[in-house]
Write a protein that binds this DNA or RNA. Structure first.
Ligand SMILES: [Mn+2]
Ligand SMILES: [Mn+2]
Ligand SMILES: [Mn+2]
Ligand SMILES: [Mn+2]
Lengths: 222, 222
DNA sequence: TTAAATTTTTAGACAAGACTAAAAATAAAT
DNA sequence: ATTTATTTTTAGTCTTGTCTAAAAATTTAA
């Protein structure tokens, strides 16, 4: 159910949830179980019910795929989740590392209208605090050019547009290094040995970025 | 679980949830069942569990009372509910007749901190859109002098401070008559026959108020 | 191409929360 | 003080969502 804007670099174009997931590749029962911390047996049971209701395409032993209807529902959930995250950060002053769990609860409040009003109240934000895209009322959103920081070269200049991981430890760590959405920087060095990079954030001192970190920061070349 | 500020006219003083409910009078199993639209059997089952957890005092056939701990929990829920109602009206532009059901969902989001921040964001409102008191972080609140409009006499001037019924039909009806929290008016006539009243809202035309309506509007004499 | 390892499903059980129908306790009426 | 009516509880069942252990299917390796 979780969308991964990260996997879709390239041109700006319209997309739906399918574009945000690994297109057409079924997810395994075990992976789902792992993701939601439940047993594989429970996942099988539930998936069968969702299949009955036509929210997923499921054939035993072959994994699971969202149907169009399931995708629509999932997109709505993603929309709600991300708008609530915006609210928590923009209006209640939470940090980007604190909002996911709260949004997980708020997203289950049933009311289309509430979310639409929330969106208006927030002035129609296009991205959530982690840089993820917010689908509009109709489920559409605009894709964005982006690439992992690890793919940049020396002397490139770039802007941080998102993160691949929402883990609060990771986000807090980035925060401590003053790395946040919107900051611009230049690549000073890239070490062939392990791919570590030295970058300099405009108006600040140079920082060393480990390859694992670099892979999980999404940037836009400028 | 629902607090009734209406039952406590009189002097301004500190209170807790006990003050807001019919003090010490146990609620019957059937009344609870009616209130939540469940069977009496279900209520008995659940009450037994709450009794186990010490949230209520229950003895079979004798009805149910909140314990101190249960009261504290209930107060928190009431606080959350009312703050969310404020949010929906103040920030998202909902009408007072639309917010109860949404707040019923939002109140179940688990996070003390979230509610405290919401309260601050709303500038520490003391009353919700229906004029009900909002407990503070510690569960305390200040009682307010009030009486039903039906108890006023000719030539009295008063201000609307709340409503006894939260039914959306009733609230919409009041709205249509331009009766809302904060408006001030004068009693022109009171008909002995059935208790109907004619009132005039400052800067408007006189209106006729039926006794049922008058009983459910809380006012403060001025 | 068969055997071993892994993944996924089934079978069976359990807890929570609901319900209906019948029994028991309490309250009201004669 | 009995009888009758009402309220409340118990008994038994159902549904939903979860789990573990064992069986079945698929994938990987020999
Ligand atoms: Mn999130
Ligand atoms: Mn996010
Ligand atoms: Mn309410
Ligand atoms: Mn209210």
């Amino acid at each position: 159910m979780k969308a991964h804007a990260d996997q879709v670099g390239g041109k700006v174009l319209k997309g739906d949830l399918q574009d945000l997931t690994k297109k057409g590749i079924p997810v395994s029962t075990n992976d789902l179980a792992e993701e939601i911390s439940a047993s594989a047996a429970s996942v099988t049971d539930m998936i069968k019910k969702l299949n009955e209701k036509k929210y997923v395409d499921y054939q035993r032993y072959q994994g699971t795929l969202l149907t169009l209807e399931g995708g629509r529902l999932a997109t709505k959930l993603v929309r709600r989740h991300r708008l609530w995250e915006c609210f928590l950060v923009e209006k209640l002053g939470y940090g980007w590392e604190e909002v996911h769990e709260l949004a997980e609860q708020l997203e289950h409040v049933q009311s289309e209208d509430l979310v639409d009003r929330l969106e208006e109240f927030l002035d129609f934000p296009r991205f959530d605090p982690h840089g993820d895209l917010i689908p509009d009322r109709t489920g559409r959103f605009t894709l964005r050019t982006q690439q992992p920081l690890s793919s940049m070269s020396i002397d490139d200049r770039a802007e941080v547009v998102g993160v691949a991981i929402h883990d609060s430890q990771f986000l807090k760590f980035l925060g401590d290094m003053n790395i946040e959405i919107g900051i611009q920087f230049k690549i000073l060095e890239k070490f062939d040995y392990d791919g570590s990079m030295r970058i300099v954030i405009d108006g600040s001192q140079p920082t060393l970025i480990s390859p694992v970190i670099a892979k999980n920061i999404h940037v836009k070349k400028i």
